[in-house]
């Protein structure tokens, strides 16, 4: 699964940190190194976040979510347990099952592997943010039509992965779908139907290599 480079960590970015270091370094060019080190420590202490809670603002499904979180809280934990967005599921909490997949700026991301503070300032889309006015998206409708879900616990993750794929690549091959879903697991065994649903949503008329048939006994 692709993970977008964290542009900003809390109030910092890599660039602002280096900048502050640069200014400090210039200002202390003439004094002893010891003073410089003390100065650096002071600057860093000011910029350290946590271990206590800090205000965190997340843009989720177009709305601003203002939370007070310890910096170590994951995006998944923030969504599921500090707000009411429980559509993203926790299956493993260590980036192996994909049930927690959300989109950040249209890129699928494991929300259990990203800190909430890292996700600030970016457009986060969860499964709750897809259907507008009660109308399912093409991907959701295709999942429904093809019965590409059973217990449904992995389903939000697969829907996000397939949605992200089709936004980037509207006419995927079977290998593209396999690659896009390689970070998602399903224990009920809906995979063949998910492949069909991905193709149906992309507008490819005839999909599957699979056959099903009902015959009488007699």
């Amino acid at each position: 699964m692709n993970e977008s480079e964290p542009a900003k960590i809390g109030p910092f970015s890599r660039r602002t940190f280096l900048k502050s270091l640069g200014t400090t370094a210039v200002a202390t060019a003439a004094v002893q190194a010891q003073t410089m080190a003390a100065e650096l420590e002071k600057v860093n202490a000011e910029k350290t976040i946590g271990p206590g809670t800090v205000p965190v603002t997340l843009k989720v499904n177009g709305e601003m979510l203002k939370l007070q979180l310890e910096p170590r809280v994951t995006l998944l934990d923030a969504l599921r347990n500090y707000s009411s967005l429980t559509g993203s599921k926790e299956g493993c909490d260590r980036g192996t099952c994909g049930a927690c997949t959300v989109m950040i700026n249209d890129v699928p991301v494991y929300s259990c592997m990203k800190l909430a503070i890292e996700a600030q300032g970016q457009a986060i889309t969860t499964v709750e943010g897809l259907a507008k006015n009660g109308k399912l998206t093409k991907v959701q409708q295709a999942f429904l039509n093809r019965d590409a879900l059973m217990c449904g616990y992995c389903t939000p993750g697969f829907v996000m992965s397939v949605t992200a794929l089709l936004r980037k690549n509207p006419h995927p091959t079977a290998d593209d779908v396999r690659h896009a879903c390689s970070g998602n697991l399903c224990r009920c065994g809906t995979y063949p139907r998910i492949m069909e649903a991905a193709f149906e949503a992309s507008g490819v008329a005839k999909v599957a290599i699979n056959k099903t048939e009902v015959i009488p006994y007699a």
Binding site: V177, R178, C181, S182, N184, L185, C186, Y191, P192, I194, M195, I209, N210, K211, T212, E213, V214, I215, P216, Y217
Partner: peptide, 13 residues
Amino acid sequence: GLSDMPEFDIVLI
């Protein structure tokens, strides 16, 4: 996983 999927032919009597 999804990548392990074979072709299926399912017949229900």
